[in-house]
Design a binder for these strands. Structure first.
Length: 675
RNA sequence: GCCGCCUUAGCUCAGUCGGUAGAGCGAAUCACUCGUAAUGAUUAGGUCAUCGGUUCGAUUCCGAUAGGCGGCUCCA
């Protein structure tokens, strides 16, 4: 037995230590109960690799404790909890085959192939079984294994064997094996050597085992708090051609309190849900009689929608766009020319037979705009030519994806198409992207990132040559990178006609939605499609590039995200009712009605509560409606020629002279500030 | 589209082990005229989503359809 040198890194401090060979990581941390794993940043292993606490130190290791409440620590906790869940499931349902079980944002899941899908009562039983396993304090024990031995040992787990095969890249012609593995599967097999984790019970027997890269908690008892959330089906390896497995979602936290806080955050988020607020605030609804995914806007929602549209229209015109208008349906041939029917056909509503001719509802506005472009000969002097409208499109979305305003079947795009020379394209992309981002900021949306959707060469849903795609992608990527915003790649996510940059915004519960897009299209203008041309300076006919861009993406979706962003408490310029007049007694009604008239004359949206409720109740109602300004008038105010302000946060400002009250509201609306 | 769950008054939800239903909020009416988040009383609201089956009888059990919710796949 000899000595080895390791460095114990802790926060900023680094301490060199001499230990004997065979020393385990946990022995360095035995005084820190929160430590559940080790991060090794030494020369001998990959940078930042996470190890079990039972990891045997080697000479030169730089080792750092990983605590349970850190990001890595929580992932390890959740991954281990997923294992416990899988063990419980297999004990209760011995025929269940294991899929994958990775940690995810705020929790984990595990997929199982079972005959009958899980029902809520099953989750209760599984939870109970999990508590029992946790109590038993089973030890997670790592065991390296060769591919051949693993395949032999896991004969009863076909999905695990499939993963081992993928890892080995054994499928000729499958392309990059790593890419083929579904998201999350790397947690099971990773790269390099395979390992199995055995769960050892008190008697020293293997109670359960799973193919897994780890690391894991030392024992099951180190799981402080968990909860199973829901079950759902999920396609094996994320491909709808594969079998559906039954997925159980759960969450796990370092303390009971952290779990409770998490559950509380979910409840809070549900209160912001635009579907609920849309009903509570009387903004919009989805009448069954109209059809799934087809919203109607009530007067108050209509105000918000119009405020959004007015502002966006104004900004587009200021940015050099020409406002145009196009119909909702067209003869089918148009969408053959554009490529929509062959490449996007399943997203379109079936044809309407009109006098023996097939018409289609449009799913995109570009073909119509192309016809406007083509309506006469264009000169290079006209370019960039920017056509813009609120184009209503209809998409036959699969029934299971409809979701409030954020995923509908009929919606308005604030859609534009810029026709430019190839040389002008980069500057126009930049112009559009910056314009889009500035609009988002004007609406107070700041939690978003960019996504670059590209073609997937292995799929045939794309038109055009590789070279053109590469060039177009480069233009978009350069501009996107220049914004300095987070940019996430999305291979295979492009439209059939060209790559796209999109803005991804989050909703109340963290789901992301695609908002605005900028798409570079060299296909639709081509000779075999719309054959768009312009006359260049030298008199030759050239083909323009068209750049599609929807700034909000869809008015409907954007409103849904806005509602959640503000939790219904809109800034005054967007608020359906900007001012709620509250008379203290009936004799103050006329005083406030007169003020309301003056405010309305200035274009403000004001209502006076003439009900015979008590003023406390009127305040409560206005508060629940999240009206930004309440102006209250009683005897004192009438006498002073003033009103009393109350804001949404309960702040009040009494004795404000009438003219100042009007000016104050008008200024807040004008500046588009939040109050 | 796929898997699971759900659908009772305008909203949120009870309830009926098969004998046609209740509450709170909201609405209407009356009284009260009130100073910063709920005044009191009275009344009216339901073919228990729709259609079919089983049954003496279905809101309840079964099936189909529609719509919703949570995921998966897809997407603005």
């Amino acid at each position: 037995m000899s000595d080895i040198q390791v460095v114990l890194a802790h926060a900023d401090a680094r301490a060199e230590q001499t230990v004997t060979t065979g020393t385990k990581a946990w022995e360095l941390f035995k005084d820190s109960p929160d430590v559940i794993a080790a991060r090794v940043v030494g020369a001998s292993v990959a940078d930042g690799a996470l190890k079990d606490l039972a990891y045997e130190l080697v000479d030169g290791d730089v080792i750092e404790p990983v605590t349970i409440e850190s990001t890595d620590g929580r992932d390890i906790l959740r991954h281990s909890t997923a294992h416990v869940m899988a063990q419980a499931v297999q004990e209760l349902f011995p025929e269940a085959k294991l899929g994958i079980g990775p940690p995810i944002q705020d929790g984990f899941y595990y997929d199982f192939d079972v005959e009958t899908p899980f029902v809520p009562e099953d989750l209760v039983r599984i939870e109970t079984k999990m508590r029992k396993i946790i109590k038993e304090n089973q030890r997670f024990e790592r065991r390296p294994i060769s591919d051949a031995d693993a395949i032999n040992e896991l004969q009863d787990e076909p999905y695990k064997i499939e993963l081992i095969g993928l890892k080995g890249g054994g499928h000729a012609g499958d392309g990059d094996a790593e890419q083929e593995i579904a998201e999350g599967a790397s947690v099971e097999v990773g790269a390099g050597e395979l390992t199995i984790y055995d769960n050892i019970n008190r008697k020293g027997e293997v109670a359960w085992k799973d193919l897994c890269r780890g690391p894991h908690l030392p024992t099951t008892k180190r799981i402080p708090a968990f909860k199973l959330m829901r079950s759902a089906a999920a396609y094996w390896r994320g491909d709808e051609k594969n079998k559906q497995l039954q997925r159980i979602y759960g969450t796990a936290w370092e303390t009971k309190e952290a779990l409770d806080e998490h559950l509380h955050r979910i409840e809070e988020a549900e209160r912001r849900d635009h579907r609920k607020l849309g009903r509570d605030l009387d903004l919009f609804s989805f009448p069954d009689e109209i059809g799934s995914g087809l919203p109607v806007f009530h007067p108050k929602g209509g105000v918000i929608k119009r405020a959004m549209e007015d502002y966006v229209r104004e900004r587009h015109i200021a940015e050099g766009f020409d406002y145009v208008g196009t119909p909702h349906i067209a003869k089918e041939g148009l969408f053959h020319t554009s490529g929509h029917l062959p490449y996007y056909g399943e997203g379109m509503y079936p044809a309407l037979d009109v006098d023996g001719m097939d018409y289609r509802l449009k799913a995109m506005n570009c073909p119509m705009h192309n016809l406007i472009y083509r309506s006469r000969q264009r000169s290079y002097r006209e370019l960039p030519l920017r056509l813009f409208e609120f184009g209503h499109v209809y998409r036959h979305e699969k029934s299971g994806v409809i979701h409030g305003l954020t995923r509908v079947r009929g919606f308005a795009q604030d859609d534009s198409h810029s026709y430019v020379t190839p040389e002008q394209a980069p500057a126009e992309v930049e112009h559009l992207l910056n314009f889009m981002i500035s609009l988002l900021r004007d609406f107070g949306i700041d939690d978003f990132y960019l996504e670059l959707s590209t073609r997937d060469a292995s799929k045939d849903k794309f038109i055009g040559s590789d070279e053109d795609w590469a060039a177009a992608t480069k233009v978009l990527e350069d501009v996107a990178v220049a914004t300095g915003l987070e940019l996430v790649p999305d291979p295979g996510g492009a439209a059939y006609y060209g790559p796209k940059i999109s803005v991804q915004a989050r909703d109340a519960i963290g789901r992301t939605w695609q908002m605005g897009t900028v798409q570079y299209d060299f296909n639709q203008p081509s000779a075999d499609r719309f054959n768009l041309e312009y006359v260049a300076a030298d008199g030759t006919r050239q083909q323009p590039v068209m750049i599609h861009s929807a700034k909000f993406g869809s008015i409907e979706r954007f409103m849904g995200v806005l509602v959640e962003h503000y939790a219904g408490a809109f800034p005054p310029w967007l608020a359906p009712v900007q001012v709620q007049g509250i008379p203290i007694a009936e004799r103050h009604n006329d005083y406030l009605l007169e003020l309301a008239q003056k405010m309305k004359a200035q274009g403000l949206r004001v209502e006076v509560d003439l009900s015979d409720d008590r003023m406390q109740k009127k305040i409560r109602n206005a508060q629940l409606q999240k009206v930004p300004f309440m102006v209250i008038a009683g005897d004192n105010d009438v006498e002073a020629g003033a009103v009393s302000f109350r804001y949404r946060d309960g702040r009040q400002d009494n004795g404000v002279p009438l003219d100042e009250a009007i000016a104050r509201v008008a200024a807040a609306v004008e500046s588009r500030e939040q109050v």
